[in-house]
């Protein structure tokens, strides 16, 4: 009888360990995603303000966030802060690092989405006597969200996968949990396949939900 590829020393509790890892991946994605979105929207809006100095400063900050590898950022935030005497947990460090990293991208999405709203529409809003705030609230925001939503979702899906980087500081998310088991069984293929299924199960519903929302937003209001 040929050796069964699934009879390779995977114990029942290993599946449980992986499910736990998957849950931590979800938690990390949610926390970092919320942080990145709030921060990214704020940064993006600030970049749209007519203050050149501020814009250059923020561009430099977000460019740095986007240019330094995430692995380096995670380690720097975790160990760097520890060296300075601030002990924060792996979860907090990971959330902050991932959140900052993604916020840099989201701020660009926000800026581009707002700039994609036709200037003529904004002019029309002002021509009706709307204030600048009303112009943004009733015209730029709703149209900008439609414009930027797909890119934003792409960044959130990116966070799901980037959570694996946080493993370097000891946060046992899905991939780290999987690797822990692999060290014991010495048989990566079935376990990595299973991990891939878990990642898919996390991303796919998000992606479907996104497509649903996109469709709803564009219902009747396609441009």
């Amino acid at each position: 009888m040929p050796p069964d590829m699934f009879a390779s020393g995977i114990a029942p509790q290993d599946y449980w360990l992986m499910a736990e890892g998957a849950w931590r991946t979800i938690l990390m994605t949610l926390s970092a995603g919320v942080l990145a979105t709030l921060l990214g929207v704020a940064l993006g809006l600030l970049k749209l303000m007519p203050w050149r100095g501020l814009r250059h400063l923020l561009d430099t900050v977000t460019d740095s966030l986007r240019c330094v590898p995430l692995l380096v950022q995670v380690t720097l935030i975790y160990s760097g802060l520890a060296v300075l005497g601030f002990r924060i947990g792996a979860f907090t460090a990971g959330m902050v690092a991932l959140g900052l990293f993604a916020a840099g991208y989201i701020s660009e999405v926000v800026r581009e989405a707002a700039q994609a709203v036709p200037g003529n529409l904004r002019r029309a809003a002002r021509g009706l006597g709307m204030t600048r705030f009303q112009e943004y609230w009733y015209v730029v925001l709703p149209l900008g969200i439609r414009q930027g939503f797909p890119s934003w979702l792409g960044i959130i899906l990116g966070i799901v996968k980037d959570t694996s980087v946080v493993a370097v500081i000891g946060y046992v998310e899905l991939l780290r949990a999987t690797q822990n088991i692999i060290t014991r069984t010495q048989d990566p293929l079935p376990l990595l396949s299973l991990a891939a299924v878990f990642y898919f199960l996390i991303c796919f519903p998000l992606s479907m939900l996104g497509r649903r929302l996109e469709h709803m937003m564009n219902g009747g209001a396609v441009r």
Partner: peptide, 21 residues
Amino acid sequence: LNHLRRKLGIVFQSYNAFPHM
């Protein structure tokens, strides 16, 4: 100006209807 513009209706070459409403 926002106040003054209530007196001055303007219509543009590009139609500028708000597409989401």
